[in-house]
């Protein structure tokens, strides 16, 4: 297994995602002899995981079962240990598309944070691209390096422990794209410009507050960036369910066109239910609450020098 390449069977040292049920997953590092406790019982790595096919059902000691899944950046995003606030898949997807990322792209990122976006970038730019990621927090940088190694993507990434606003990305004229997720992105715009290729490239900055966006856009304009565009994407997850709508009782009628007929007119199944009738229909309801804001995404193009 690797985050940039699928494999069929689980091997020692792999990171697998244990799927316990809807919205309940956990990442596990496979080690022979090790055990993992779940609410359905224990999973013994040697017998239950190693040599099994990804996606297979594993029966735990208490008789319950779980699925073991191949890791993907998307699964990792919902399972990773948070060291910072992270970027989620909806924003990541748009960042990837709008930065024109593809195999071979050279990308700069700061800060590395918990590595949620980093894994996605690595997946997309492999096997010929490279990620230069800058994290000023020594412990986080160290942890990221370790994770990249465990996930077998360290050949595609360079982690630098420095302050991007003061010292930049540590490279000049090689990047196709730059991504900024820092409190004061406007202070890193010069460094971003320097890191990008002479022939130009794309930039994205993620900021939760509009004042940050305002200052960033100003800095981008002053540094000759073009096509500056700020947007926001919100994801709605719909809950698929059957809803039952009772039919009102108008009392007995003279002719035979009764409410039962009406129900079938509604082209749905009617269920006689202790005298009253109701209609069951399949629908999808939006959640009662949803993430209303993550951050503004500001994109820009660096023109040719």
């Amino acid at each position: 297994m690797s985050f940039v390449e699928y494999s069929e069977l689980i091997q020692e040292g792999d990171v697998v995602i244990i799927f316990l049920g809807h919205d309940s997953m956990m990442p596990v590092k496979v080690q022979s002899g090790a055990q993992t406790q779940t609410r359905y019982g224990v999973i013994r790595h040697s017998s239950d995981l190693i040599g099994q096919r990804f996606g297979s059902k594993v029966t735990c000691s208490k008789g319950g079962w779980v699925y073991v899944l191949h890791p993907t950046p998307e699964l990792w995003t919902v399972n990773l240990p948070h060291r910072t606030q992270i970027l989620y898949t909806t924003d990541i997807a748009n960042i990837t598309l709008m930065l024109d990322l593809k195999p071979g792209s050279v990308v700069c990122e700061s800060g590395t944070g918990s590595g949620s976006l980093s894994h996605s970038i690595l997946r997309t730019i492999a096997p010929t691209g490279h990620l230069h990621t800058v994290e000023f927090h020594a412990q986080r940088a160290e942890k990221a390096i370790q994770e990249f190694k465990e996930h077998k993507v360290s050949h595609l990434v360079t982690v630098r422990n420095q302050d991007v606003c003061a010292e930049g990305f540590g490279i000049t004229g090689v990047a196709d794209a730059v991504f900024l997720d820092i409190p004061s992105p406007w202070e890193a715009v010069t460094h971003a410009k320097r890191a990008l290729k002479r022939k130009g490239g794309r930039l994205c900055s993620f900021s939760p507050c509009i004042e940050q966006v305002q200052r960033t856009c100003e800095a981008l304009l002053n540094h000759g960036f073009e096509e500056i565009c700020t947007l926001e994407v919100l994801l709605r997850v719909h809950d698929v369910r059957s809803v039952t709508l009772p039919l009102p009782d108008f009392g007995p009628e003279e002719d035979c066109t009764n409410s039962t007929q009406m129900a079938s007119d509604l082209s749905q199944k009617e269920v006689p239910n202790t005298g009253n009738t109701s209609v069951i229909c399949k629908t999808a309801t939006p959640p009662r609450e949803m993430a209303g804001h993550t951050g503004y995404l500001t994109f820009a193009t660096k023109p040719r020098d």
């Binding site: 799927f19 926001e232 994407v233 919100l234 709605r236 997850v237 698929v240 399949k282």
Partner: peptide
């Protein structure tokens, strides 16, 4: 919705999610 229901019935798929997204552009000027 029909696909979702059918897959649930039939099995072989997990983590089913039905989603849509909103896209909002901003004018950013002083």
């Amino acid at each position: 919705i029909e696909c979702y229901t059918k897959l649930r019935e039939q099995g072989g798929a997990i983590s089913l999610r039905l989603t849509d997204s909103w896209l909002r552009h901003y004018q950013v000027l002083p």
